[in-house]
Design a protein around this nucleic acid. Sequence first.
DNA 1: TCTGGGGTCCTAGGACCC
DNA 2: TCTGGGGTCCTAGGACCC
Length: 439
Amino acid sequence: MGRRDHSDSSSITMAATDHIFALIDCNNFYASCERIFNPGLEKKPVVVLSNNDGCIISRSNEAKALGIPMGAPLFEMQALIKKQEVKVLSSNYALYGDMSQRVMATLMEFSPDIEIYSIDEAFLSLNGFEHKNMTDYAQTIRATVKQRTGIPVSIGIGATKTLAKVANKAAKKNSAWQSVFDLVNHPYVDEVLEKMPVENVWGIGRSLSKTLNRHGVLNALQLKNLPDTWIRKNMTVVGHRLAWELRGISCLPLDMVVPPKKGIMCSRSFGKPVTALEGLKEALSNYTTRAAEKLRSQNSLAGLIMVYITTNPFNDMPYYSNAVTFSLPFPSANTAVLIRHAHQIMEKIYKDGYAYKKTGVFLSGIVPDNQMQRDMFVKEPDLVREKKLLRAVDAINYQFGSDTIQYASSGMIKPWRMKQAYRSPRFTTRWDEILTVKI
DNA sequence: TCTGGGGTCCTAGGACCC
DNA sequence: TCTGGGGTCCTAGGACCC
């Protein structure tokens, strides 16, 4: 997300001048959001689960201290959770999305140049603020976010985005720094890099760290000092950029405008397996509706639609998965059209006799909805009317809650719906679930 | 018997991120 | 019993063209 699209992918574009980047990162974001509305969670181990209550995807510091790993399946942790009285919550994305917007709105007051990198992270450019004490300024940002939203953040400052990431990790690690670390005005950058394991560097994943370790590269400083030729050969242009960033040469600019998505995915695991074609089509209708909404919200049309189904890959039942892509006669953002094609694909890939765990739809071949390719051999629908209708439906669903108006093929009972046994109320986005205070 | 080479476009798959 | 979802970028290799 948020990466620059280099026209020549094998080249490295360097920044002309010195930069100051700050990376602001919400601490244990989902767990922190839950705490704000439920003070009973304060100082207690808290974990938030993935969709369908499958894995642990956010942990409070207390939960981390108990040794609960990121991404652990819930059932593997049940004994520990019970013994240590860990508080467990299903994920509540309506709440997290809304809290994220509040945090980002606050950050924007501290610099006009901001890149919202993910739901819980943003880069700020602090160019032009050189006259200020960076650490003090960052502490002010931190205090303001905390006061307005209740969310604790950590801030790392560096000459490149990658160094700001390094600084952010350092800020979290050493409590003496009070969640702020400035690597621009730090005399011993190399010492900090030397203490950072290479697998913790932004952009170094499992595979690359294995290769690097094999060549004796264990920390970020060693990576920084590798010969360019070796890096280019073994780590492609991505690794090359990364090493330069560690050397303080900015190659990853701040992306302030959000480019439209090139692909839109919507998929969910089922609460319980689905065997019948009708159930799969019903779930698929719902997911296609969501995907089409996302498509319209960025004023795009999709030219390709892919549908896939899969059984559970983890158990030893007979496994089956399949996916088929279909090229639409002309690009569309019309939910009804997309559902019709999605269903046709589903009928093709469905095989009787399997217990399906998941289905999903992926829309790609994205084009802006105002410069659609005209195909003179295909009869076009009345696009203006269609757009008006869809906008009206979107507006109603936005105001009164999604699925206020829904397609009949989406079903009413939805027995396949994902598990959310521990979900907190949508405090900030639903009037009927707003927080009440008893006096 | 001899059997080119270079360019572009597209796709699948891998790797990474949060 | 129980294992998330949604993105981006890069490269290699095949198809196709001249």
